[in-house]
Design a protein around this nucleic acid. Sequence first.
DNA 1: CATGGTGGCATTTTT
DNA 2: TGCCACCATG
Length: 814
Amino acid sequence: MISEQAQMFSPEDSSRPQPNLTKGLNDPQAEAVVHGDGPILVLAGAGSGKTRVLTHRVAQLILEQGVFASRILAVTFTNKAAQEMRERLHSLLGTDGENLWITTFHSAGLRILRHNASRLSYSNQFVIYDDQDTKGVLKQVLKDLNINEDRYPLDTFSRAIDKFKNNYILPAEAGQRASSIETDLQAQVYDRYQKVLLAANAMDFGDLLVNTVRVLREFPEVLDYYRRTLHYILVDEFQDTNKVQYMFIRLLAEPRRNLFVVGDDDQSIYGFRGATISNILEFEKDYPNTKVVKLEQNYRSTGTILNAAHAVIEKNKSRKAKKLWTAGDDGDPIRTFIGYDENQESEFITSEIRKLITQGYKHSEMAILYRTNAQTRALEESLVRGKIPYKIFGGLKFFDRKEVKDILGYVRLLINPADNQAFQRVVNTPPRGIGAQAVQAIADEARETSMPFLHASVTVAQSNKHVKKFVELMGELKQAAQTMKLGEFLGFIVEKTEYGPRLAAMKDPTAQSRIENLQELESLGRTMERPETSTEEVMKDFLDRISLTSSADVPAGEAGANDPNQKTDTVSLMTLHLAKGLEFPVVFLAGMEEGLLPHYRSLDDVVGLEEERRLCYVGITRAMKVLYLSRAHNRGMFAAGGSAGSAGGARVVSRFAKDIDPKSLTAVGTERSQGASFIEGYPRFSFDDDDDIDTRIEDDYSNTWRRKKKYPSRDDAQPTYSSKTNVSLDQIRNLLMPADAMKQESKTPEEYHGKPSAVFEQLAPGVEVIHPTFGKGCVESVKGSGNTANVTVKFDSFDEPKKLVYRFAKLVLG
DNA sequence: CATGGTGGCATTTTT
DNA sequence: TGCCACCATG
């Protein structure tokens, strides 16, 4: 991948010790870089050198204004962008930049919460729930609240919760705001959902932001600490920040207001995630003396490409007037193609790539961009047949692979025994005779005792031999973790759970690639190992890193961290969203059709359509020299639906393409195409496919799998590790559930509320109590004493009274 | 009571 | 294409 503006670095720029930081910059760029204290908004058009301005600004602060690197926080959109910025600063600053905090919003939140989550009654060791975990929790919540999923689909709730969090609306406020049956249900689900997460000591992505802001707002000493630490704050892609993120920034920057934000209202494409252009407008309101700098000179694209981009974007009503210009040439016309269907469109792109290669372009200089991930299927097939090396960004991540998540599920459960989602994932994976009934029994036991599923399963193990075996397995894994390094341990899990051997015994051809993925995971674990650090600590880091690795950071299906410097020569495939911030000499914009771009889900509202237009704009402006627009006349994915925008199955050209001056378009792909118009035309049923694409699918991949085969086939499969079952359930219980694993990090509710610990003596029927998770309630009965004491409490928010083990329940008097 | 197979169905964009 | 719900079997 070519980095934005990378080619503009001349050797003089990085000469030390006194680099002239404004050399080679244009006037507005320089103005932004040398800006003193106080707020500044840089409106940076596509390709106007904004990353360069950001990095030089940081260097300026350190080298010219004498600011300590540790006083600077730079927030970027993805880990990849952060990494790139770090590298560029390294070449500008050398080791002076070592203490810079360059990070994403989510990573920043995670770091703050790892130190402060206990203030919010989480443990600082909390885990991060991904989308799947989240859905699992929601499913349970809907069941508990007797909500009919057919009537109120699960997705509407996950979307609603997401929206609450993007806008920093906490459950209580959501409840107050509720104005209809729907919104009231949403608030109820949200409330309960948060309680389940808290009980599992887990946070979802949104919580990483919401809880960070909560900590900063509710604990002045924490806010004070970070304000004293961070004096200069820079934010990239400011147009795509949402309300919580903006609150976070504002809180930190408030006393000094040294806030440097860079954005482009024309590239705001994350409205569905709560981002609003109004953040840019509000910025000038919130910081009245803001300096505004506009970067309008484009260093990336040809005149033709810029004109097309402008023609598309100028139709938007809500945007700041501006026009990019270039000192360069007009360049080539934009090339167009209409395929009979998506397969022909893909074949065309493949064959063009081959031609461009013969003309001297590298694969890595080309990208195929599209609106939806579903479009990759046809493209991928065709590229494979054409033997074009490619990488797909986004889509299914390596860490989203089922087998990888399964094995990591064991790791998660060992680290955080309260992780009930991880428990449910692994308890019968691979199948070991623990079905729905057994899991329900465990869930019931867990509910009655207010204990995590894992703990409850130890009790159920007394009456269920399958569960007993599982519990013993977990005990063995726990012990192994104490002696093995991470890589070895991951391999041990794969063997010991029989996950690997079972895969090896499968006829399914994908099984071999899954085994490879697990081997990849193992070697990834090995790279994480640190001599002085316990495997448990390493595992925690490992999980954090995995949780925050976004699909933009690493190509689909790759683990990433293995060989960061190995740049391979491949064509890049990605959605328009992921392409933001990148540039390529050659760009294919596939699927230029109504219903796809703009997507049919956005057709009926103006705001949505404007965002689609920006998306198209982002796509066009990724291209440096050569831009292709292609579309198909028929598309499989819509054949059945007959969706809006496609009358009678025939696909109509995108309205955005119609805005481009036809004189700058030229049809390619067939000799007969000279007069054919991309905008009104019909597909040609052949193109000059003279490259003789070998249609035999080569067996390269399966050969590699076979070579690396590690596991024996079923016949000689034997347990590699002897199993020792002479450990008692009680011993395992203690092993899996050390007292401090259940204890909240630093504060019990007693400490938390500053009350003496003699709560138990005062418990009696009728006494009001508060539970950290369940809230307020009234004691119904008290039984036993010491470690086994039980308290039955009727909580306000639950119909059924709950039986709690006093030792764990952390009750305080109400 | 657990499992594996089959058939139906929907499918934006992402930290 | 991939996921879920349902059903027949062990």
